[in-house]
């Protein structure tokens, strides 16, 4: 596997040296595949947000190392800011980071910090709004005039505009309605395929994982629980349920059909996948007749 980011034996403690000290990550080793969308799931407190904060060098691991394209990101601690342009992090509810007078200037904040010329910044902004589905008419508006979903997309565009090798999104669709979710997550595939970038998507929603991700990493109690392609992970529904996670409703339906003697075959974790499998099942049954 060609991995863009590798986490090797990383441990991290919260509130180190105080009575509240608590292990957040315990000897975590995992790699993220280049050019893919990898989902990162786990319930609150599983360590996924901590891991995300380590990936772009906001925090430093207590032990272990994080390799970006094979190079330790903490090799030159003084240049850690440069790593943050390569591993772009969209934090939870990122709309609170908006501050500039216009949407255009706000999206350009990262690229300007990178030291790019005005012309280049302009190009970056144009590209970023394409990957986040923002209407060009909005560029001259104040970010504070926008709707919640639009603000969210502008905040994401602000990271995309830095052209990171890896885009890490922590719950990018939290609190949005189904349409808002689709608008944000649907564009990620273009970003990956056209730019050859990689995406790490942290989410609570199994439906989103099933719809948008190629691979899934499952975290539990500060450790990697399991790691594989979407279909590999969702085929072990009972394990996920046992650590307080869930599988998409449609996957449970397929599972229950199986227990009643209807064994479907295919990608049994999206509505379309199960539909196709049922059609195939009927086709197969008819052929048998």
């Amino acid at each position: 596997m060609d991995s863009v980011l590798e986490v090797r034996n990383v441990s991290y403690l919260y509130s180190k040296g105080t009575p509240f000290e608590r292990v957040a990550l315990d000897d975590v080793t995992v790699s993220f595949e280049r050019g893919k969308i990898t989902g990162l799931i786990g319930h609150t407190g599983s360590g996924k947000s901590t891991l995300v904060g380590l990936l772009n060098g906001l925090n430093k691991p207590l032990s272990g190392s994080i390799l970006l394209n094979g190079i330790d990101i903490w090799q030159k601690p003084k240049e850690i800011a440069k790593i943050r342009y390569k591993v772009g992090l969209v934090m939870q509810y990122p709309e609170y980071q908006l501050f500039d007078e216009t949407v255009e200037r706000d999206i350009g904040f990262g690229p300007r910090n990178q030291g790019l010329s005005d012309e280049e910044v302009g190009l970056r902004v144009k590209e970023a709004i394409r990957y986040t589905g923002i209407d060009a008419d909005l560029l001259s508006k104040s970010p504070f005039e926008l709707s919640g979903g639009q603000k969210r997309r502008v905040a994401i565009a602000g990271i995309v505009a830095m052209q990171p090798d890896v885009l890490v999104l922590d719950e990018p669709a939290a609190g949005l309605d189904p349409k808002g979710r689709r608008e944000i997550l649907g564009h990620l595939k273009d970003f990956v395929s056209e730019r050859g970038a990689s995406v790490i998507l942290v989410s609570h929603s199994m439906e989103d994982m099933a719809m948008y991700c190629d691979n899934v990493v499952v975290m539990n109690e500060g450790k990697i629980h399991s790691n594989g392609t979407v279909s590999e992970i969702f085929s072990r529904a009972d394990e996920l349920i046992s650590i307080g996670l869930d599988v998409p409703s449609v996957a449970r339906i397929a599972e229950k059909l199986k227990s009643r003697g209807i064994t479907l075959d295919g990608e049994l974790y999206t509505v379309d996948g199960v539909k196709a499998a049922i059609r195939k099942y009927i086709g197969g049954a008819n052929n048998d007749l």
Binding site: P178, K179, G180, S249, V250, I253, V271
Partner: peptide
């Protein structure tokens, strides 16, 4: 309307 139904219903 930009909404969905529960997955079973959708299926």
């Amino acid at each position: 309307m930009g909404l969905e139904a529960p997955q079973g219903k959708e299926l």
